[in-house]
Design a protein around this nucleic acid. Structure first.
Lengths: 345, 345
DNA sequence: GCACGGCCTGGGAGCGCTCACGAAATGGTT
DNA sequence: AACCATTTCGTGAGCGCTCCCAGGCCGTGC
């Protein structure tokens, strides 16, 4: 009937490091060394261990490892936005996907946490401090979001996407130079000969909203055009708000011949309004958006826009987070936006 | 300088169960019992332990726990779709969000895994088998997706969203009765007096695509209408494919007076085409979509559609998964679709 | 020929927890 | 008062891993 430990019950028990060691004819310690980079192990032992790993189908038990290293090897992706935004704004998906991929390259899983209500925030904070994760990637355009403060005071290694207003020192972040991007868009319009360039802004309590407006103003100035309150309307980044803002603009300043819209989604809405009003794009009114979200290229006519380098952003966020985990100080990365000229301007 | 273990270095060490036990004047075991439901512990001890937990700010170390229980307490959300779909189809977001919330209620984190390439699949499978997670929620409309088989043969507790074709016995799943939903849509159109009812289908290699077409046919029959090949065009669930399909339909059968489109996104595309062709909706052509995705209600005119009970779907998926983790056999849940009448039909 | 240093290896200790077991306390019976 | 069943509690063992230390081996220099 087989002594226990000799004919071993191989009944679906996951092989442990000990099994590998036995199979390779070395000790636990040596296997562990191989698993962790293989420094100070002889080529012979290394080969034997690798063979044994394959043979036994060994895969490291992360819980045991985490227990001793005090590191989980996974990070949270915290989405802290009202629900509607999450559904509608394609940028969140792009970020989520990009970060998932960037992390996957380091073999780190991503834990998704959504904190869009007071109690959710508490749950997320509790979760974070439970040692489940090593750090956090925080996505919120919302200045004054309480999550920034909680994470900062907890000392959780955190990288924000966009300026974490009020916590620029404590938190690492990667942001796009939105002022410059908006300026690029506006001067492009001016160079096209447009003289009555309007804008649809994002919410001005968000850094993005403010910066894009600032860039618009700078672009105007740089092009010898004057800022006119009647050429400005506000939206909240949703498609419908873009449409409504454009309708207002059309009513209050019928002679506008171009519009810089602070997000692609709103630009799509603005184009709906233009279409309904019988204004040709770009014939009568040229349109430039912001973000270069997937729908920009798909739009008809295809939307000229300011590209945010999403892939790069995600990679930098992950890089910054790894640096933080490595004990380095919080750093900031500012990436340039880039004008993508398509059909609407 | 303080004996080690007496003046203890309280320098930011996370409190352990032992610390709580000391603070409460009980033993490790009792604290553990409280942590795990508090059976067989006296009210006095329970109160003392709870107080001590609060006092010390104790939070359980999940790695240590998982090491002994062999359970991680987290599940993977596997998204196995080509990239474009992920970006464009709002249903994925709805599912992701819904599952995150449903899991959060059980205090289980969700790990996001995206497997849209061959190598991604391998990575994800490796990850899954590494013991990081207890089970998986699998979202893929793609029949014949290799992930189904891998998960099934690995014996990972898995719940699929939609029929896991070929693995209906091995895997649990929750699906919507799409045949019935499509039938509902079609008979609704017929009851409205429409006689030339067209359809834009989804991809027919997907169960959803086939079922919705079947429901359309049944609805036609039930209404005394005959199936006509010229009233059928195929799309791939993207908005643009809906537009193109509609254009084809309009060309080959100009006298159509209604259309059942197999997804809201395609319905939106179809409405673009109708708009361009100068056909009024619903005046000239009535439109019914499928899914009731967020954009359906937001569309102008608002889209009549077949609602998939997303929240319910997510809850059932999580329920089924928990049952699986509890040792129960894979089960299937079929939920009814529901017609939501808005403006387009 | 011997001492010394550099590689490589084995194995003890321990991370923080749960679980099983047996001891202790409790309370109800005869 | 003695006994047994039941509840409550404490403790040893051990989950699978990494870290560290002691010791073995080899080559080099004197």
């Amino acid at each position: 009937m087989g002594e226990r430990g000799v004919v071993v019950d191989n009944g679906r028990r996951r092989p442990t490091i000990e099994d590998v060691a036995a199979a390779a004819g070395v000790s636990r310690g040596t296997v562990s060394r191989v698993l962790n980079g293989g420094v100070n192990v002889s080529p012979t032992a290394l080969a034997a261990v690798n063979k044994a790993i394959k043979q036994t189908g060994y895969v490291v038990n992360t819980h045991a490892r985490s227990l001793v290293t005090q590191r989980s090897g996974s990070v949270a992706f915290i989405l802290s936005e009202p629900q509607e935004k999450f559904f509608e704004d394609p940028n969140f998906q792009v970020l989520l996907r990009g970060c998932t991929q960037a992390l996957a390259e380091h073999d780190m899983p991503l834990l998704l946490s959504i904190a869009d209500s007071e109690q959710d925030v508490e749950r997320v904070v509790r979760f974070i401090s439970s040692g489940h994760i090593d750090g956090a990637l925080l996505v919120s355009t919302h200045a004054g979001n309480p999550v920034f403060g909680r994470l900062a005071s907890l000392g959780i290694p955190t990288v924000a996407c966009g300026l974490p207003i009020g916590y620029e020192r404590e938190l690492a972040y990667v942001a796009v130079n939105e002022v410059e991007g908006a300026r690029l868009a506006t001067t492009h319009l001016a160079r096209l000969g447009r003289r009555r360039i309007a804008t649809v802004t994002g919410p001005l309590d968000l850094s993005g909203g403010r910066e894009r407006l600032k860039g618009y103003q700078e672009g105007l100035e740089q092009s010898g055009l004057t800022y006119d309150q009647n050429l400005v309307a506000h939206g909240d980044y949703t498609r419908i708000s873009g449409q409504l803002a454009m309708e207002r603009l059309l009513k209050q300043t019928p002679d506008l011949d171009a519009v810089f819209v602070a997000s692609d989604l709103m630009a799509l809405g603005a184009m709906d309004a233009l279409d309904r009003a019988g204004r040709a794009v770009p014939g009568d009114v040229a349109v430039v958006g912001f973000d270069d979200s997937p729908s920009a290229a798909a739009a008809r006519p295809a939307l000229t826009t300011v590209r945010q380098p999403w892939k790069r952003i995600c990679e930098e966020m992950v890089r910054l987070l790894l640096a933080l985990l490595d004990g380095q100080e919080p750093a900031a990365v500012i990436l340039p936006g880039q004008l993508v000229v398509r059909e609407t301007a």
